[in-house]
């Protein structure tokens, strides 16, 4: 079936089977491989994307459910010049990236939170990351990076 939506501000129309996930649509039909398949059952958050401004697990969204919506993937998160944005820079500055597999999801979960509030407490940041698992960092540095970004964006 024909699935039409906006991904990273570009309109796309894709012919795809009705029974695949949004994650497979992004990766296999659109070549957007930033969203990862970790668990495929909603437990890890590696497949996180924003759908109409809200964080979702793209492995739990049926591809045709995305029809008519606005999707933001990690490929659409960057500075105006195409380089890393402030949150991504802070992930590096604060040592929040090790193997990297969880990071696209972590950045999107962070962006979803920062869309809602620029004054999150550390507890709120942890709650916002509750569906995103990281096997490497111990989360502390990721929380630091999001906290620092919130502070910088407040001061802008």
């Amino acid at each position: 079936m024909l699935i039409q939506f906006t991904v990273n501000k570009k309109s796309v129309a894709v012919e795809a089977p009705a029974d695949i996930t949004l994650l497979d649509l992004l990766r296999d039909y659109l070549g957007l491989t930033g969203a990862k398949e970790g668990c495929a059952v909603g437990e890890c958050g590696a497949c996180s994307v924003l759908m109409d401004g809200r964080l979702v697990n793209s492995c739990l969204v049926l591809a045709p459910q995305a029809d008519g919506s606005e999707i933001l993937t990690i490929e659409g998160v960057h500075a105006p010049d195409g380089g890393l944005n402030d949150l991504q820079e802070n992930f590096i500055t604060y040592g929040a990236v090790q193997c990297g597999i969880c990071i696209p999801g972590m950045v999107l979960a962070g962006e979803a939170l920062l869309l809602e509030t620029l004054t999150p407490t550390r507890a709120e940041i942890r709650t916002a990351l509750a569906g995103n698992l990281c096997r490497c960092t111990g989360y502390q540095q990721i929380v630091d990076a999001i906290e620092a970004t919130a502070q910088q964006r407040r001061n802008q």
Binding site: R54, L55, V56, N57, L60, V61, A109, G131
Partner: peptide, 9 residues
């Protein structure tokens, strides 16, 4: 319930 992504869907 779940994490934010589950609550959003």
């Amino acid at each position: 319930v779940g994490g934010p992504a589950i609550r959003n869907a």
